[in-house]
Design a protein around this nucleic acid. Sequence first.
DNA 1: ATATAAATATGCTTAAAAACATACAAATGT
DNA 2: ACATTTGTATGTTTTTAAGCATATTTATAT
Lengths: 233, 233
Amino acid sequence: MTPVAVNIENCINHKNSVFKSLSNEEKKILSETHSAHTYKKGELIFKEGDKPTGLISLLEGKVKIFKEGVGGREQIIRMAKPHGFIGYRALFADENYAASAVCIEDSSVCVIEKNTLFKILKENSSITLHIMKLMASELGFSNNRTVSLTQKHIRGRLAESLLFLKDTYGMEEDNITLKIYLSREDIASLSNMTTSNAIRTLSAFASEKVIALDGRKIKIYDIKKLERISELG
Amino acid sequence: MTPVAVNIENCINHKNSVFKSLSNEEKKILSETHSAHTYKKGELIFKEGDKPTGLISLLEGKVKIFKEGVGGREQIIRMAKPHGFIGYRALFADENYAASAVCIEDSSVCVIEKNTLFKILKENSSITLHIMKLMASELGFSNNRTVSLTQKHIRGRLAESLLFLKDTYGMEEDNITLKIYLSREDIASLSNMTTSNAIRTLSAFASEKVIALDGRKIKIYDIKKLERISELG
DNA sequence: ATATAAATATGCTTAAAAACATACAAATGT
DNA sequence: ACATTTGTATGTTTTTAAGCATATTTATAT
């Protein structure tokens, strides 16, 4: 991880921050009640059942959000990227976390304390509506996934996951290598299949020249075909 | 359907309405810009791709919200009941509808025009936060369902659906008959299975004395066992 | 009242994916 | 440097649920 000072500034003044429009007065309040944390790859940020203490903003790194299902089987429901929120659903639903968050890479976050947040939201309806829009988009995403994961076949689900990872994290400078390095097990948890089937189907895609595999590095050769496989089911 | 005058009063002053705390001035604005509609069983309120014009509140009846998946296969993602909102996700995400809404029974709705709604929300952050909480709960529900529908076996999925219908619509006066009458096809779309398998598995539950079937009427005899089947997967 | 269509029911076959088994490679800790 | 664990790969078997076929019952339309 590039060592970046974990600072509330990175959280509230970044171009993608929903808080950048706040008054200096309000920003001061935010900066006085925030906390910051760093995590190593594999570390837990929160787990199912924990009580949210504030709004977590991911500053650096990559995080998977997943639920434990039947027999402890993991289902990844979301992947977070820098300057996105983590665990905000539970916070706004006033519930305990219904999912766990684990870092895929070394990561840093800042946390805006719950009461301060709601005080500021009460005074700034446009920010509240903005966060509401984020949540509405995520609900649409979740509904889409429910249908994809239940109706598409293994190849379709895996193709969709690869396209999703591309959309979320983008490509390396070569414009062909996915800018995220997941274990086969995580790819499986994302795509609702067993690890064996993830490995098998990745191999199949590779031998069809749709992708190329080099350890955890995935190169996408034929994105059109991947889209067709995903559409087809 | 019991003939009830479709009136904005039923929408904004009902005990479950998020708008009941508004000032008389604001209520007046709402009532001047609302519209009301009635639908017969089977009729469409909106369909995937339509543009939302306002916030729809269901006054009477029952509505299924579903998406078309692979090969037109239907997946019910939500069931609405009186005094709940319909289609609010698309409205707040500023997207076209990603799902369709069809009445399961004769229904009536009132619609609060979009611009009026947002004007009022900007002035009433506690209502916005309230709606946000609703949406956060629904997102939690959607995530849960993603896991259930993908990981549970047919019996577990059907059991979960029956319990969900009980929680959503409750029981008839006898306290044993589900207060909703769905086709086997709709039960299948709700539970992510083929109609054949829904029929087969309902029959199995009936012969195990967990439920009793009488046409579309479903009596739940052994709710504990149903819960066990649902938990088990 | 009768024809037609739609919904329900059940058996049989096939396809898809999980489960299991085993081998091998890579990473990690001592 | 070596042992141990974890992750990747691939073949085989078994289970699950879809797909298909065909009655039978119930609604709906004429």
